[in-house]
Amino acid sequence: MNLVYAASACVAIAATIMVITRRNAVHALLYLVVSLLAVAVIMLLLGAAFVAALEVIIYAGAIMVLFVFVIMLIGPRNDTVSARDWIGPVILGLILLAELLYIIAAGPFAPLAVKEVDPRQVGIALLGPYLIGVEVTAFLLLAGLVGAFHLGRRLAVTLGRKGD
């Protein structure tokens, strides 16, 4: 198990590094999918099978597909990044990472045993104490839906003019 854990962690990190360094958008996208899948494996190993599935379905499945569609609409994009651009963010990132790791390492290490939390518990928690969160999320999704629809409509008109 440790091996799988370590492997998927490495894959996730490596894939993410590839995401941020690729020039081709589609490549970056695909690497991100890989990363997401690896993260899903980690989640599975942590006993959260349900959210692992959700991760794959929604994140890697729906959201990334959206990105693919958009890229398809716009056309392949190539983003040029010079080496000089990296210096600042990398430094900043390293600083931040150092701080995070320091904080993480500061606390006592937790026990190793993992208890699986099954979807049933999650469901009860969602519709119990976190009910209002669910409602709010529903609002949010509705807002996203309406917004995307509205923007899409304008876009459709814009595109429609030149189109057929």
């Binding site: 990363s35 942590l46 390293l94 045993a113 993992v114």
Partner: peptide, 20 residues
């Protein structure tokens, strides 16, 4: 299930975050 200390998981999450 895994017997990796949870801090490693947090560390992974941290690394991913910083990379993002």
């Amino acid at each position: 299930m895994a017997s990796v200390p949870f801090e490693y998981g947090l560390a992974v999450a941290g690394v991913l975050f910083v990379l993002g």
